[in-house]
Amino acid sequence: MRYKQIMMTAAGFLGIAIIVAACAQRGIPTGGDLKSGYFYSMPETQAMQWDTEANDWADFDNPGFIWVDQGAEQWDTINGEEGKSCAECHGEASSMAGVSTTYPKYNAEDGKLRALQDQITDCLVNRMKAEITKDWKWEGDLMLGMTAFVKLQSRGMPINVAIDGDAAPFYEEGKTFYNTRRGALDMSCANCHVDYPGSWARADLISNGLPNGYPTFRLKWQKFGSLHRRISGCNKNIRAEPYGRGSDEYTNLELYLASRANGVASEAPGVRR
């Protein structure tokens, strides 16, 4: 009798635990200390990324997939003098699961910090002997598409960049950039994204400024675009001279942003206003 009661109570708790776990799984994947820009977006924008009714990614409504599909096609396309495709060396794209969450990452061969785009360029140039056409430049359609396609393999997984060891000096540079006031308005990134997330800057709800949704389809751009393009916009808004997309300065800064996002689920390809 007593035994049965205990078992029933235990079964009850287990049932509740399962329901709680199931509820926790409803909605876009979350994690980490800070919140993704998704949670600071308007419901119409969110709906282009996540279908709450189906409780799944809204890929049919996400215009970023026009670029992702081009990336997927390139994965299997032979390109360059070596006559190779990405697939010939890397196999199924699913072999890239988890890879992008560790970028930007220190590369021992050249002693530099590599954004995912730098790594893709390295494979194109050095392993495939392919030409970097306009489409494969940082903001080119194929580079955006391939970056997002590789990141898609890690969608829902927590960002997980290393900031210690060889990565430490790059992280420190990025952190200094983040906290330095600049431009005619003399503001740092932290002035907005650390001090005022949740406040309105006119019609914009300020978020934590995380990189986990990039490349993203931005409604204002009516186009898919890179994180470095977004950062350049934040620089120009405070009337500061931007750096180039793919510059060391922005890649170091990307590492710092990613470290703030450690634990937050990767969402690329995202949709933002």
């Binding site: 330095t180 006031r181 600049r182 431009g183 005619a184 308005l185 003399d186 503001m187 002035n191 907005c192 001090d195 005022y196 620089n235 120009k236 009337r239 500061a240 001279e241």
Partner: peptide, 25 residues
């Protein structure tokens, strides 16, 4: 010192866009 509010009579000093260099808002 920590405020986000811009100084309207003091030009920025770090990487100010060329066309605003040396100019107060």
């Amino acid at each position: 010192p920590g405020t986000i509010m811009p100084a309207f009579l003091k030009p920025g000093t770090t990487r100010v866009l060329k066309k605003f260099e040396g100019k107060a808002i």
